[in-house]
Simulated assay, not measured.
Amino acid sequence: MCRRYPSDLSDARWELVEPVLAAWRAERRGRGLDIGRPPDHDLRILLDAVLYVNRTGIPWRCLPHDYPPWPTVYAYFARWQEEGVFDQLNTLLRRQVRWQEGREDEPSACVIDSQSIKTSTNVPAAGQGIDARKKIVGRKRSIVIDTVGLLLGVLVTAASVQDSVAGQHLIDRVAAEHPTVRKTWVDGGYRQHLVEHAATLGIDMHIVRRDPATRGFSVLPRRWTVERTLGRLMNHRRLARDYEAHPHRSEAIIHLAMINLMTRRLTDESTPTWRGA
């Protein structure tokens, strides 16, 4: 297939994700969910359209006309999110990246951090809050990654939600979904009670604090990994703000960005930046 835009999947990247999407479509047909529907759109062009929105940050209604109609693209995006396709792709690709780098499929340690972000005008006020420390009105993205920088979990909340509250949800999820994890690192925004909660789950939590005497930027042990991941995610303009009306759609956008990064990592394709654009 001819690539129209830089965000489109190369043949090598499509080969990595095609089996999951093909199995998803076959499973739906097996349940009779597509009977009586119009002819199916090509899965690759649909995913290309979703990645285009994720990478460029445009509204869904502004999709170029050589993609399928935007309501169709968004409907597939929503269905993939609801039926766990993005979660499945992230798990599969993460294991492949770890295997490629000579590591076990499942991690033994992780890092947790959060990022407060402003929201667009279409986000309901009930789903927003104020991060008093950062003086940001919007939402908070809490992520947990392995030591390679790959996503293990994400939770989007109002910015007013404390790091320790979101962190407890994430550490519970890690304990349930990744039982091999025995150690995690967090910053000073996470409270001692979370350390104690993690201990009850068999996870040793370390709080990495910044030296108050240090001025300017400094690399913190272990913490730099999650900061690097957040920086790479922010190369996707859809994440420059939170444009999604529903938090679970925001989480799907983060999963999509990580899918983009991991497929490029597996195929040795560089990730273009916006510098000089």
Rank of each mutant, 00 (worst) to 15 (best):
R13T: 07
W14E: 05
W14Y: 08
W14Q: 10
E18K: 14
P19N: 02
P19M: 00
V20E: 13
L21W: 00
L21I: 00
L21T: 00
A22W: 02
A22D: 04
A22T: 06
A23S: 14
A23M: 09
A23Y: 06
A23L: 11
W24T: 11
R25K: 06
R25M: 02
A26M: 12
E27I: 08
R28L: 14
R28P: 09
G30C: 02
R31Y: 02
R31K: 14
G32C: 02
G32T: 04
G32Y: 06
G32L: 03
L33D: 05
L33C: 02
D34P: 04
I35K: 13
I35N: 10
G36C: 13
G36I: 12
R37G: 07
P38C: 04
P38L: 04
P39N: 07
H41L: 13
H41I: 05
D42G: 10
D42Q: 12
D42I: 00
L43R: 09
L43I: 01
L43A: 11
I45K: 12
I45F: 06
L46M: 14
L46E: 05
L46V: 09
L47C: 04
D48N: 03
D48H: 00
L51N: 03
L51W: 02
Y52E: 01
V53K: 08
N54G: 11
T56V: 10
G57S: 05
G57M: 05
G57R: 11
W60Y: 12
P64Q: 10
D66R: 06
D66S: 07
D66Y: 04
D66N: 13
Y67M: 15
P69R: 13
W70M: 06
W70A: 04
W70R: 07
P71H: 01
P71Y: 01
P71W: 00
T72H: 12
T72N: 14
V73C: 08
Y74A: 02
Y74F: 07
A75L: 15
A75I: 03
F77C: 12
R79Q: 14
W80N: 12
Q81G: 12
Q81M: 14
Q81I: 01
E82R: 15
E83H: 10
E83A: 05
G84N: 14
F86K: 11
D87W: 01
D87E: 10
D87K: 11
Q88I: 00
Q88R: 11
L89K: 04
N90V: 07
T91W: 08
T91S: 12
T91F: 06
L92I: 08
L92T: 10
L92H: 09
L93Q: 15
R95L: 02
Q96S: 05
V97E: 03
R98L: 00
Q100L: 14
E101H: 11
E101Y: 10
E101Q: 13
G102N: 13
G102C: 10
R103L: 09
R103M: 11
D105S: 10
E106S: 08
P107Q: 01
S108K: 14
S108P: 06
A109F: 03
A109I: 07
C110W: 01
C110H: 02
V111E: 01
V111A: 03
D113N: 15
S114E: 06
S114K: 08
S114C: 10
Q115C: 09
S116I: 07
S116Y: 06
I117E: 04
K118I: 03
K118Y: 04
K118P: 01
K118D: 02
T119V: 15
S120C: 13
T121L: 15
V123S: 11
V123F: 09
V123C: 08
P124F: 03
A125T: 09
G127K: 13
Q128N: 11
